[in-house]
């Protein structure tokens, strides 16, 4: 059993390594041998529809993105609780169901609140 366990994570490590190796090898090792490199002032300029870029591009952006990120964190954490609950559900019985109904209801109230406050609208 423990051999299988170790082997499984050896495979995961191999896959992760291959996933990193392919872009690194092609872009940084194989690529430079094949492609030209003739940079000039114009090429290295930031693209802005053909005009000279105005100001810095790291500008302020819509606060809505933060609100969606916040919503995502809340509901992603909810799923984090739902997964182990779902796996062990058959052993837990009715008590677990009632508890999870309460938990989901609490979050749904949050969702309804966000809905009513027009947070989910993109305007």
């Amino acid at each position: 059993m423990s051999a299988i366990y170790a082997n499984n994570y050896v495979i995961v490590a191999i896959f992760l390594l291959l996933g990193i190796l392919l872009p690194v090898a092609t872009v940084h090792f194989v690529g430079p041998l094949l492609r030209p490199k003739r940079p000039n002032e114009e090429k290295l300029k930031t693209y802005e529809s053909g005009n000279d870029p105005i100001g810095n591009s790291w500008v302020r952006f819509n606060v809505k993105y933060y609100i969606f990120a916040l919503m995502f964190v809340i509901f992603d954490v909810e799923t984090l609780f739902l997964y182990p609950w779902a796996v062990a559900y058959n052993q837990l019985g009715l008590f677990a169901l009632v508890e999870m109904v309460i938990f989901i209801t609490l979050l749904v109230i949050g969702l309804i609140y966000a809905w009513r406050k027009k947070v989910l609208e993109w305007s």
Binding site: V12, G19, T46, Y47
Partner: peptide, 29 residues
């Protein structure tokens, strides 16, 4: 593969190189 690899002068060099790896690595893993 034969195209020139341009990187804007004002780009963040390290993150600019890291981003494609971050996008592709997990896709294969």
């Amino acid at each position: 593969l034969l195209k020139e690899d341009t990187r804007p002068k004002s780009a963040d060099k390290a993150l600019f190189a890291l981003a494609p790896v971050l996008a592709y690595g997990p896709a294969f893993a």
